[in-house]
Structure formats: structure tokens, C-alpha cells
């Protein structure tokens, strides 16, 4: 019986995915640990792993559930997902000649790593679909396993380790990585991040974590104003 692994293009996708498979594992483990203490029921929090399948949005959803309103929480996750709009726009020409079912199904799995590899891959047509299938078969089980293992691990870790601080450290690391890798130079992104920090600090007293959205918006505007790169 033919398995996905008998397809050489799936194997190429796997080989390409391999170095990117390990780094998200600590993230997934941390997310699973944090899910144990979330205001969300554990089952619902876990379901975000296969259904949302986006680390940053999941971590925001799980950690903000205790303090934010429904609207602030969903708005924050929407803003966090804005980078996916860029990915989607960048891949749109490559997907234009794909069958309708694939164009509807593929975006479910469009995480950062899948985007980066698909964007760099030379395949088109049927080969692109097979390559993409290989990537999904690599990243989806890895993520579900890591988060589930984190949940199992959560009970064993003592509260004195203060893993409640881990999500903030993760987001801080993501800021730095996003600033450093920004297309068109890091300066506007750094301005955006610094202004966002300042304005969020000033608006922390605003109800329902609204300061988060005000700070993010101020950062985007400041970054846009600071952007001097040629178009």
C-alpha cells in the first residue's frame, strides 16, 4: 500500500522541515504547561492546538482569558494574526492555479515555518500540493504532541518555578526576533515596539486590557511614521 513516505517530494519536504521541527517544541511544551493554569477549561484550551494551530495566538488566548473581555481577547488574537495576512498575500500568486479544495484547506496549516518553506520551494502545480502535504505531516503532529506533553508535564512542575512568567518572556523574545528579521530594516519595527511598550505602560489602568490594543495601535502608527525605506 502506498504511504505518504513513498512520495519523494514528501520526503524532500520532510528533509527541509527537519531543522525547523525542534525549535517550536519548548514553545509547545510551555503552552501546554500554561494551559493547566488558564481560566479556560483545559479541554477547550487544548482544542485550540488542532483548531487554531498558531502558537502566539494560542498563548495570548490562554493567558488573557483570565483578565480580558471576550472582545478584547478576540481583537488581540486578530491583531497577532496580522502577519498571516502578509504570508497569505505573498503566497496568493503561487496558489492561484491550485484547485479550489486545496486553496480552502491549505491555509488551515499556514504557520510561520510552513510559509517560509513553501515560499522558498520551487514547486508548482501537483508538486506544490505534495510538498505542502509533507510539511503539514511534519509540523502538525509535532505541535499537537508538544502541547499535549506540556499539559502532562504541567502537574510535575512546582509552582516555585514561576512558569507563569514564561509566556511574557516568550512574547518578549518574539518581539526581538520580529524586529531583527523585519523586511526593509529593523528601525521602524523597533520604534513600533518601543512606542507600544511606552503607551501600554501608560494605559495599564484602562479597563478590560484595552491598553494592550491602544499600545499596539500607537506602535503601528509610530513605526509607519518612522519608516523611511524606499517602496
Amino acid at each position: 500500500m502506498p504511504t505518504p513516505w513513498s512520495d519523494p517530494i514528501v520526503r524532500v519536504a520532510f528533509r527541509d522541515a527537519l531543522p525547523l521541527l525542534v525549535p517550536p517544541i519548548p514553545f509547545g511544551l510551555t503552552l501546554g504547561v500554561v494551559m493547566k493554569t488558564s481560566a479556560l477549561p483545559l479541554g477547550v484550551a487544548w482544542l485550540s492546538t488542532p483548531l487554531v494551530f498558531a502558537g502566539a495566538a494560542q498563548l495570548a488566548m490562554v493567558t488573557l482569558a483570565a483578565t480580558a473581555t471576550w472582545l478584547t481577547l478576540v481583537a488581540t488574537c486578530t491583531v497577532i494574526n496580522a502577519r498571516h495576512v502578509m504570508y497569505s498575500a505573498a503566497l496568493a500568486p503561487r496558489f492561484a492555479d491550485q484547485p479550489r479544495w486545496f486553496r480552502w484547506l491549505a491555509p488551515l496549516f499556514l504557520v510561520d515555518q510552513v510559509f517560509a518553506l513553501t515560499d522558498a520551494a520551487p514547486h508548482a502545480g501537483d508538486e506544490l500540493r505534495r510538498y505542502y502535504r509533507g510539511l503539514v505531516l511534519a509540523f502538525f503532529p509535532m505541535w499537537v504532541t508538544a502541547v499535549t506533553a506540556g499539559i502532562a508535564l504541567g502537574d510535575l512542575l512546582p509552582a516555585a518555578w514561576r512558569l507563569d512568567v514564561a509566556p511574557a518572556v516568550m512574547f518578549c523574545g518574539m518581539v526581538v526576533l520580529a524586529v531583527r528579521s523585519r523586511i526593509g530594516g529593523p528601525t521602524p519595527a523597533a520604534v513600533a515596539a518601543i512606542v507600544a511598550v511606552g503607551v501600554t505602560l501608560l494605559t495599564l489602568e484602562a479597563p478590560n486590557n484595552l491598553g494592550l490594543l491602544i499600545g499596539a495601535l500607537a506602535g503601528v502608527v509610530a513605526g509607519f511614521a518612522a519608516d523611511r525605506s524606499p517602496s
Binding site: V179, R182, I183, A192, V195, A216, G223
Partner: peptide
């Protein structure tokens, strides 16, 4: 391009 850094910093 600036949305990611800004919202993650605010978060």
C-alpha cells in the same frame, strides 16, 4: 510589517 512587533510588545 510593524503589527507583529507592536502587538507582541504590548502583550
Amino acid at each position: 510589517r510593524n503589527v507583529g512587533p507592536a502587538v507582541l510588545a504590548a502583550l
